[in-house]
């Protein structure tokens, strides 16, 4: 059986390596991507979407469908970890591990975390909102937001944070992030555009179609940030407590 899988993976690997010979060279200016698609984005994205950072406009507008499923992939990853690791207290009598007596009471760590966490959260909101103009956006801002809560969970203990950020609401909110993204796309349908064609929002928002695409991207980025943030925290809470959700690292 092992031999068979070795043969299969070697054959597949060989075929894939063979196929790479047909791919254009790295950075080849004559490759199809460089001739048609890139030039179109570089020349037209500011006129069409009024977003100076055309990485963002490609990510959230031209290829919004792709990014929507990336968000769903992150959501699925969080839910999968939850499904595999999460145990209820009834199923298993847990062994009591020895814990340091001062856990979650270290004044220096708590004070530093209380200073740093709000700064991180403000910065994360800036990253989310400034993705139109500079590197950043929903994924990065969401990760910073989520890690600010992880920092608090490390300085205090997991129980303290779970009182504020309930497990149920974490899961619901991570779903709501995906729903924000898909909802913005769906409303475009009802307003007479295509799915994820944000220019349809112009009649509702009272701005031009170009501006509406920019605003639609911001809304989508917020949805991505919400999902990423809650999934990050959910992953930490599951992995650090082994699915018990009672004590962290």
């Amino acid at each position: 059986m092992k031999l068979l899988s070795l043969v299969i993976s070697l054959t597949l690997g060989f075929l894939l390596l063979l196929a790479t010979a047909d791919l254009p060279d790295w950075g080849d200016p004559q490759s199809p991507a460089s001739i048609h698609v890139s030039n179109y984005y570089i020349e037209n994205s500011v006129e069409q979407t009024s977003v100076p950072n055309f990485v963002t406009s490609v990510l959230a507008d031209y290829r919004g469908y792709d990014t929507m499923f990336e968000t769903i992939v992150i959501f699925c990853a969080g839910i999968t970890v939850l499904t595999i690791l999460r145990r209820s207290h009834r199923q298993k009598k847990k062994e009591v591990r020895p814990r340091p007596a001062r856990e979650g009471k270290d004044l220096i760590l708590i004070s530093a975390a209380r200073i740093i966490a709000p700064m991180m959260q403000i910065f994360a909101l800036y990253v989310v909102a400034h993705g139109h103009h500079s590197p950043g956006g929903g994924f990065q801002g969401g990760v910073i937001l989520g890690s600010s809560f992880i920092l608090l969970a490390l300085a205090y203990d997991l129980e303290t944070i779970l009182k504020r950020l309930k497990e149920r609401s974490v899961i619901i909110m991570s779903g709501i992030g995906v729903a924000i993204y898909m909802g913005i796309g769906m409303i475009c349908l009802f307003l007479g555009g295509n799915f994820l064609d944000y220019s349809a929002w112009s009649s509702v928002l009272g701005v031009s179609a170009v501006e509406a695409r920019s605003h639609g991207m911001l809304g989508v980025e917020i949805g991505v940030a919400v999902t990423v943030m809650y999934i990050m925290f959910s992953l930490y809470a599951d992995l650090s407590s082994g699915g018990e959700m009672d004590e962290g690292l």
Binding site: L109, A112, I116
Partner: peptide, 20 residues
């Protein structure tokens, strides 16, 4: 400013973990 706060705190946490 961030490093001035974070770096000594991280050192403190490492020290504490070593002592524990």
């Amino acid at each position: 400013v961030l490093i001035a706060i974070a770096s000594p705190t991280a050192t403190h946490a490492l020290m504490d973990a070593g002592y524990e």
